[in-house]
Structures are given as structure tokens and as C-alpha cells.
Design a protein around this nucleic acid. Structure first.
Lengths: 324, 324
DNA sequence: CTCTCCTGATAGAACGTTTAATCAGCCAAT
DNA sequence: ATTGGCTGATTAAACGTTCTATCAGGAGAG
């Protein structure tokens, strides 16, 4: 391990001068600085982050807490975060909160003990984290717009519902996974807001909802809007069993544009979260707070993007309905 | 930030005594130690990892480098690693190498600069990392059995091929994604090894392989064995278009047991990596090396597990074949 | 009574970096 | 000729922890 002292001895100057030369902070003649820089790189000098952290009180590390690392959005989130973090010269320490609020706060504590400079938290359903001694950015929660960055789930729901009503559907099933989830509720309410008042709309939840949806289709529903690609995939399976074809008999949509959505059969119409923007914005919020900057109204939600594929089409009997 | 010095002043002893009392290393009378511990916890003392790292030269942090964080195995890997790491009191710093060997070595360098104590690397296809100044555990590479832990891809291939031949298939297509991938080659060769010599076997690769497989099915093939669930899903789509039903007309298998495999239609027969064991073993290797322990022959591969679901069945004409 | 041994506690250095304070020269201005 | 200002470099302290060496004091042995 080659330290400032080694370089200092080697070049024949003091440690402080070496430090100044390398960081460009103090007063060093340009030629000496040059000589030091060259020698440092020759010796393969790497500054000790531990020493820096100790002296400055900043570790240059951010903590990332997710409720469930197997959440399909985690990979993309992690990737974008790590790229954005790399650009800002900070590292990302991950922690899993295994879905339970208790382990969430334990995970937070662990990260704090590791000396993270800030936290990025995707909170449990309905659990907002306690006030923390370091800056926090919360993802996918609209509760505290100051610290949070979230996809516009309501807008996304509206987007896809508008697409569906626009191509002529009037008897529609909305299918959610878990009524406790704030995110899923937002999506459903967004859908509801975009559907015309003359439409016949039914909302179902959970596993039982899938069978209910099939019954609804038998009763004339022409579209099923789910709050997750996973639910859509499951629904698709049941529809095959029930001999109902997509999109001829019924249109089907997902949510999140997961990896398998484009290669489903038919390719799934869905709505994509702009994970990149969300992650980048979260990093920005955190870094700005750490530097003490006042950030200018980053609180808005990030719009979602409609991805129309093959699982939606006008209802086969839409013309009849319009004539009636 | 409350430090040893605060506690020392508060209790009226020296810093060294406080340190000894809390770590239990020096010689402190039990009653004094008790008093110090109580006071420390009252003041909410948290040892500074930075100072510890500086003094000891160990950061207590492991680096995890993956070729692509959107890889579907990453979440489970990250989750298990983070749990195992938590148990061993170490943190996990993630880095993405975006698929390119160049950024892989940059990512490694970045982690080293952050002072990680060890590295867990899932290397690029065919790229083995340079010798490193810290212990390294390589995942899914059989090249260096000393440092590496890998799923038994060959065995997994054999497992699924054996299942297929066992239920009567004799005309079989093997479908790989990328012939450059060592992992996929292992899987294919495992399949080949388990198929009886009287079977008619064809191997196809890449996107063109999907159409080739369909042609093969038209020519009498009764099973398609892919090297990835994603390929299987894609194949499934094309089979629907081609009016070929699964598993009645053709059996289909995947690899990896990804999240969507059980909810595909029909639910996909596949082979699961024991990610938990792999991750735990990687952590063990790293921690043992860091402590300087000699580890006892952990080099073996981790067996895979066959998951039989609904996408495989005996070929409809298997009886005819057996009679002939 | 002195010497040694043991226990319980302390002083102080060290890890590598940053930074405020200081200092030696040198030139110009009073 | 003393003062003041400037440049280029150094000294030393500090961050919080660990750990070796040291020390005070009491007990026991000679």
C-alpha cells in the first residue's frame, strides 16, 4: 500500500505538499506539482478511502434499501443507480429488507453503521421510514414530495385506460394484485379516471380476481387491464385454458414492461416506468442534499410511457355497440 | 457523532479502557466494563467504520461485479449474497460491468479503490479477471476450481435431457442462444451426453435457430430443449403462431427457472440453479480467504435441480416408436 | 524490608489524509 | 534599514480506533 508518506520520502518533500499537489488545493509550484504527480502515478498511488472518510466524515457511499430484491424492477433500478452513482463518484451498498418493516429498519441501521452518506429507499407497502440522520430519497411514494421521486402511476393507469377506451372498449375489467399496495391503487384509480362514464367497469383483486375476470369476459367484457405484467401473464394462461383468445376475444394489458412482456404471445401492451429517469433523479436529490444545495422543485412525478403491442385491439363487436 | 472519547470523558476513564471494555480484549474489571457498556448504549455509541477500516486495513465490504445487472439471476444472487453477507457482518457494494470486458476491469478497479476486502465476480463470457490484490470468488466459471463456484451446467443439461429421453422422446432439438457463452455450451454438451445414441438430435443457435426448430418439429421432432427460459418463452410464441401445441405436439423446456416460468402456459419444465447455495458458498470462500483460513475443497460445482411442470409429456407417437 | 509477580488501568503511537497555522525567503515600499 | 506582502513549502494537529508498552499498587515470597 503506497501512501502519501512514501511519495513524500521518495520525492523529498513533505506529506502536505504531496497532498496539495495531488488535490490542487494548497500552494505548490507548477513544476514541483508536475513532478509529484508523475511519481505518484509511477508508484501506483491510490488514496485510501478509509482515511479520507475518517478525516472528512463522508464515506462516498450511498445505501440502497429495497423491500424485495427479487422485485423485477430491482435489476434495472440497481443498474441505473450504479451507473449514475459511478458518474458522481459514489458507491452503492445494497440491503434487502425481506419485505418486513422490522427488517427494513434493521437494514437501514446497518447501512447507517457502515457510514453511508445518504439513503435511497423503496419503502414497504405503506411504511414510511423514520427520520434519518442522513439525507434520504424515497422512491415510488408520493407522500413526501420533497424527498421522493415516483413514477406517475396514476398517469400511467390513465394512459393505458385511455388507449383502451379510445379503440372502442366499453365493458372493462380492472385487475389488481394486492389492494394494500399504494402503487397498485394509484394505477387503478388512474385507469378509472380515464374511462368514460358510459363504460361498464369492474374492479377485481387478488387471485380470485382472475376467475372473476373470466366470468366477466363471458358476460361481455372486452378488455382486462391489470396492474402488473406478472398478473397479465397469469391471466393469459387462464384465458388459454378458458379458450378465450387475445386480442380477438379480449384485450389484455400489463404494467411495468418487464423483460418477458415483448416476447409473450401475443406481445403484451403495457406501460413502462422510466426507471432511468427515476433512478437518476433519486441520485441527484441525494447528492444535492449531501452537498447542502437547495434543489429546485424536483418533486414532480416521472411520466410513464405507453407501449402498445399486440395484446390489444378494437373489440370485435365494437361497431355493433357504437351503432346501438 | 459520539466517539470513544466522549464515553471516556463521561465515565471518567481513558479511551483505551473504553475500547477494551467494549471489545472485551484488554484487561478491565468486570464491574467497570459493565458500567462502560451501559453508558455507551445510553449515549447511542456507534463505532466508526471509517476509523476501524483505517486502523485495521479491512473495510468489511465485499464488491460484487456482474456483467449485466438486468440479468434475471442477479436479483436472487444479490438477495442471497446480502443475507449471507449480513450474517458475516460485511456489506456488499455492487458494480455493473455493462457487458464489456473493458468496463469490467474499470469496475473492478473502482471497487478496489473503495477498499473492498474481496471480490465476487460473475465474469464476462470467456473473460477471466486479472490477478487481483484481494481475494476473488468467481461464479459460474469452471476454469479455476480453486476460486470459483459454479452451478453444474453440464449436469443440469444432462438432468433435463434424461427426463426427456426417459419419457420417450427420440427426435430432439437443442436450442442455444449464443454459442460464445461457455455456460450455454456446457448446458448443451450436458444434454448431448445424456441422450441415447439411437436418438436423432439437432443443435441450433441464435434467432435463426427458432425457425429451424419449427422446421425440425414439422419433420418429426417431438421435443425442444432450450438453454434459457427466455428462449423457451420466445419459442413458445412462435409455436403458437405455427399452430403447434405444447406439450401435445412438442415438449418444450427452459433453463434457470426464472420468475415467469411457473406462470407460463403451459407452466415450463425447466432446471433451477441453486442460487442460494452458490451465493453462500461464494461468500464462504471469500470470507475464509480474507481470514487466511485454508478452505477444504469447496471447488465442486453445485448441482442443479430438475423442475418438471406441464410443458413436457411423452410424445404422442412414442408408443409407435417403441414398437418399431 | 526488598524483590517479583500479577491485576487493572493508562499513555501514546499508529493508520493515511486534510488543513489551519507557521515559516523561510524574497521583493518592493515606507 | 525596518516593515509588510507575497510565494512556496513545512509543521503539526485532527479524525476515531486499536494495541503495545508502561505504570501504579497490592499480594506474596524470600
Amino acid at each position: 500500500m503506497v501512501s502519501l508518506k512514501h511519495i513524500a520520502n521518495d520525492v523529498g518533500v513533505s506529506v502536505a505538499t504531496v497532498s496539495n499537489a495531488l488535490t490542487g488545493k494548497g500552494r505548490v509550484s507548477e513544476q514541483l506539482a508536475q513532478r509529484i504527480r508523475v511519481r505518484a502515478s509511477e508508484l501506483g498511488y491510490r488514496p485510501s478511502t478509509a482515511a479520507r472518510a475518517l478525516k472528512s466524515g463522508q464515506s462516498g457511499i450511498l445505501g440502497l434499501v429495497m423491500p424485495d430484491l427479487t422485485n423485477p424492477l430491482f435489476p434495472r433500478m440497481a443498474q441505473t443507480l450504479s451507473i449514475a452513482a459511478e458518474r458522481q463518484q459514489v458507491g452503492i451498498l445494497i440491503a434487502d429488507s425481506h419485505g418486513s418493516p422490522k427488517t427494513q429498519s434493521r437494514a437501514l441501521q446497518q447501512l447507517l453503521d457502515r457510514g453511508v452518506d445518504g439513503l435511497i429507499v423503496v419503502p414497504q407497502k405503506g411504511v414510511s421510514p423514520d427520520p434519518m440522520p442522513v439525507p434520504v430519497a424515497v422512491i415510488n411514494t408520493a407522500s413526501d414530495p420533497e424527498n421522493s421521486v415516483s413514477a406517475d402511476h396514476v398517469g400511467g393507469g390513465a394512459l393505458i385506460a385511455d388507449h383502451i377506451q379510445h379503440i372502442g372498449h366499453r365493458h372493462i375489467v380492472l385487475l389488481g394484485g394486492d389492494p394494500v399496495s399504494e402503487v397498485q391503487n394509484d394505477r387503478i384509480s388512474g385507469m378509472l379516471s380515464a374511462l368514460p362514464s358510459d363504460a361498464l367497469v369492474r374492479v377485481h383483486w387478488g387471485v380470485g380476481g382472475i376467475q372473476a375476470a373470466i366470468a366477466e369476459v363471458r358476460a361481455g367484457a372486452t378488455a382486462i387491464l391489470t396492474t402488473s405484467d406478472l398478473i397479465a401473464l397469469q391471466m393469459r394462461s387462464e384465458l388459454i385454458d378458458a379458450q378465450i383468445s387475445v386480442p380477438e376475444d379480449v384485450s389484455l394489458t400489463g404494467f411495468d414492461d418487464m423483460n418477458f412482456a415483448p416476447i409473450m404471445h401475443p406481445a403484451l401492451t403495457t406501460v413502462a416506468q422510466d426507471v432511468d429517469t427515476i433512478a437518476a433523479r433519486a441520485i441527484n436529490i441525494i447528492c444535492a442534499k449531501i452537498r447542502g444545495d437547495t434543489l429546485d422543485a424536483e418533486g414532480e412525478t416521472v411520466p410513464m410511457r405507453l407501449v402498445v403491442r399486440d395484446s390489444t385491439s378494437p373489440p370485435k363487436n365494437s361497431i355493433n355497440r357504437r351503432l346501438s
